[in-house]
C-alpha cells in the first residue's frame, strides 16, 4: 500500500490584474497552472526524488502534500484518506505524520525563538507529550543532528551558521517522529562545503528512523545519491518517473535527456550526445493544453501542443515517460 498518493492533482493560481491594468489594457484574470494533473505515489520507507527547473511546481507540490495548500482539483491521499476532507483533529494528526524541511534555513527559523523552543514547538503545539518528556526528546533529537543540547539549547538562530540552522530545521521536523518527510531543496541555500555533511545526516536519519521522504532538488547528482525513485517535472507537468537507475541511465523523455546531459559527467570517456534545447523556460501562465516542453523540444511536431500523456499511478514501479512520440524519437535516433 502506498503511503501517499496524488491522483490527478492540479494547483492553479489566479493572477488578477490591478485596477489600472484592467482599465488601460482590458486585462483579464490569467491563470498560472503551477501543477497540472500530477499522479504520484510514495511507498513506505521510500525516498522519492523530484527534479526540475526553477518554477516547475516542486514547492507547490510539497505544500499540497503537507496539507498547507489545498489542490485546485484532484485528491491527495495519505494512507487512503483524503487530506482535503480531514477534520481538524485528523489534520493535526496528519501534520505530525508528514513533516517539512525547508529550503532556506535563514527564513524558516523564527528569529525570536531559541533553538530549544524551535525544536519543541511542534510537540508543544500538538501536545504530543508532557513538558518534561518534550525536553528529553528535544535534547535527544538535537544530539541526533549533531548539535549537543548543552551547547545549543539557549542559542538564537542568528548565533548559528547556515549548516547549524539547517540541522535545527531537520531536528524540528524529525522530533515529531514523522512517517513522511518532505524536504524541499534542503541543501540549495547552503555552502557547497557543508552540503555533503547534511546529506549524509539525512540519509543516516532516514535509515535509523524509517521515514519515507520526498526529496526535492534541481541537482540530479544529489538525487542519484539519495533517492530510490525519481520524478521529473517540467512547468507543472510530470514528464518522467522511474527508479533512479532507469531514469538516469536510460532517460526516455527528451526533457529528461537534456537535463541529464547537462549534469557534469565525472568520467571523460563517457560520451553523451546532448539534444539541443532551444528557447527559454517560461511561466505556466495560460499554457496550451498539450505538452509544455513542446516549444523547446527538438523532436516536437504539431501534435505535441495538443496531446499530453499523464503518468499512470497504478503502476508506481514502472519506468514511464509522458511523451506520445517516444517510438518515433527512438527510431530517429538510430
Amino acid at each position: 500500500m502506498a503511503l501517499l498518493e496524488l491522483n490527478n492533482v492540479s494547483r492553479h493560481f489566479e493572477l488578477r490584474p490591478g485596477v489600472v491594468e484592467r482599465v488601460l489594457r482590458g486585462g483579464k484574470t490569467r491563470v498560472i497552472k503551477a501543477v497540472e494533473a500530477i499522479n504520484l505515489s510514495v511507498a513506505k520507507d521510500e525516498i522519492l526524488g523530484i527534479a526540475g527547473e526553477s518554477g516547475c511546481g516542486k514547492s507547490t507540490t510539497c505544500s499540497m502534500v503537507a496539507g498547507l495548500l489545498p489542490p485546485s482539483s484532484g485528491e491527495v491521499l495519505y494512507r487512503d484518506r483524503n487530506v482535503g476532507e480531514m477534520t481538524s483533529s485528523e489534520l493535526n494528526d496528519h501534520r505530525r505524520r508528514v513533516q517539512m524541511i525547508f529550503q532556506d534555513p535563514y527564513e524558516s527559523l523564527n528569529p525570536r525563538f531559541r533553538v530549544s523552543d524551535i525544536v519543541s514547538e511542534g510537540p508543544r503545539a500538538l501536545r504530543l507529550w508532557g513538558e518534561r518528556e518534550i525536553e528529553e526528546q528535544v535534547a535527544a533529537m538535537l544530539a541526533g543532528v549533531g548539535l549537543p543540547a548543552g551547547k545549543y539549547w539557549d542559542r538564537y538562530p542568528h548565533e548559528l551558521s547556515g549548516g547549524e540552522r539547517q540541522r535545527v530545521g531537520i531536528a524540528s521536523a524529525l522530533v515529531m517522529k514523522p512517517e513522511l518527510v518532505v524536504a524541499d531543496e534542503p541543501l540549495s541555500m547552503l555552502d557547497v562545503s557543508i552540503r555533503a555533511g547534511i546529506l549524509d545526516l539525512l540519509k543516516e536519519l532516514s535509515r535509523q528512523r524509517n521515514f519515507a521522504c520526498i526529496y526535492v532538488s534541481h541537482d540530479l547528482s544529489i538525487l542519484a545519491n539519495i533517492a530510490d525513485r525519481l520524478l521529473i517535472m517540467y512547468l507543472g507537468q510530470a514528464v518522467e518517473v522511474g527508479s533512479v537507475h532507469d531514469v538516469i541511465k536510460n532517460p526516455k523523455h527528451p526533457y529528461t535527456r537534456a537535463l541529464i546531459s547537462a549534469v557534469p559527467v565525472p568520467d571523460p570517456r563517457v560520451k553523451r550526445s546532448p539534444p539541443k534545447i532551444v528557447g527559454e523556460i517560461s511561466r505556466p501562465v495560460d499554457p496550451p493544453p498539450g505538452c509544455r516542453f513542446a516549444s523547446r523540444c527538438p523532436h516536437a511536431d504539431q501534435s505535441c501542443s495538443e496531446v499530453f500523456i499523464k503518468l499512470d499511478t497504478n503502476s508506481p514501479l514502472a519506468h514511464q515517460a509522458a511523451c506520445h512520440r517516444l517510438e518515433q524519437i527512438n527510431s530517429e535516433a538510430t
Binding site: 493535526n92 525547508f102 524558516s108 527559523l109 523564527n110
Partner: peptide, 27 residues
Amino acid sequence: RQFITAAKARGCSNLRIIYRHILPNVL
C-alpha cells in the same frame, strides 16, 4: 515569512501563530 509556514506545518493553530510566533516579532 517562511517560519510562519514552518509553524503551520508543525501543527500550530492560528492563535498560537499570532501570539507566539508573530507577536514577539512585532514587539
